[in-house]
């Protein structure tokens, strides 16, 4: 049985990054979250605050609940059979599970990028314009400006500027993933959720996505799930380690990767279990 804290030098538990715990300091604030899939408890009483314009990484072994927890922030779990939850998730101090809140509106603010690039079988241009069109925007000049800006933000524009009408499916995996990021950015979210966004990519493409994530931090609050420890260390400001549905440790990434408080965190990040 592993001890709760590292001995003999462990100090007090650190489950919040740097700032104080007032919810108004957090862009996202999960409070006492339990998640169930029928009888199975996937998340066990997690509370965690995410600072605005920061990058937060969720790490943990497969099945620990990190993707489930991430998907709570834009209500992607709502469609899963047997899903139920307790607790509140606040976005800018408003509960996103409030029955009056429109999920479509939430997803304009909280964009998501998935593990596998999933461009639509449309042109590059139409992929990025899609979110704007389903919002009912018809001003083509506005759409074009937003498409180009988003492709530039996703550091893809210079590679495809003469081929905007080409099928998105003709792009490489890394380009497709940056296109999906551009598509998410086009509707001007303030939060970007990324579920293992580089796990299907080669090191060069992964590096480009990491650079992009760094760049996007200026304007967006980013939450990233990753199995790649080095990636979590490189890109994030804060790291949360989840294990069997519980939050084991949450804090400054530099601290987690150099001197974690908990034995379980240390054993996981050093590859000794998980």
């Amino acid at each position: 049985m592993e001890s709760e804290t590292k001995s003999p030098k462990a100090t007090q538990e650190k489950t919040e990054p740097k700032m104080d715990s007032k919810s108004q300091n957090y862009k996202l604030h999960a409070k006492n979250i339990d998640v169930f899939y029928d009888d199975f408890k996937a998340i066990n009483n997690i509370s965690l605050g995410i600072l605005e314009k920061s990058i937060t990484a969720f790490i943990g072994p497969s099945g620990c609940g990190k993707s489930t927890f991430l998907r709570l922030f834009n209500r992607m779990n709502d469609y899963i059979d047997g899903f139920s939850m307790n607790g509140n998730i606040l976005l800018d101090d408003k509960n996103i599970y409030d029955p009056d809140l429109k999920v479509e509106e939430l997803r304009k603010t909280v964009g998501m990028v998935f593990q596998k690039p999933n461009p639509f079988p449309k042109s590059i241009y139409e992929n990025v314009a899609y979110g704007l069109r389903i919002q009912g925007i018809k001003d083509e000049d506005f759409i074009e400006e937003r498409v180009i800006t988003s492709l530039k933000q996703a550091t893809l524009f210079s590679e495809i500027e003469d081929n905007l009408d080409k099928s998105a499916l003709s792009l490489s995996g890394g380009q497709q993933q940056r296109l999906c990021i551009a598509r998410a950015l086009a509707v001007k979210p303030s939060v970007l959720l990324m579920d293992e966004p580089t796990s299907a990519l080669d090191p060069i493409s992964s590096g480009k996505i990491e650079d992009l994530v760094h760049e996007l931090k200026k304007d967006y609050t980013i939450v990233i799930v990753t199995h790649n420890m080095q990636q979590a260390g490189r890109v994030s400001d804060n790291t949360a380690f989840l294990y069997m549905g519980s939050l084991i440790e949450y804090g400054d990434t530099q601290k987690i990767f150099t001197n974690p408080e908990k034995d379980r965190t240390q054993n996981y990040i050093t590859g000794r279990f998980g």
Binding site: M229, Q230, G233, F257, T258, N259, P260, Q266, I269, T270
Partner: peptide, 9 residues
């Protein structure tokens, strides 16, 4: 091996 934490120290 990209060591971290106690291994890196």
């Amino acid at each position: 091996h990209n060591p971290v934490a106690v291994d890196l120290r």
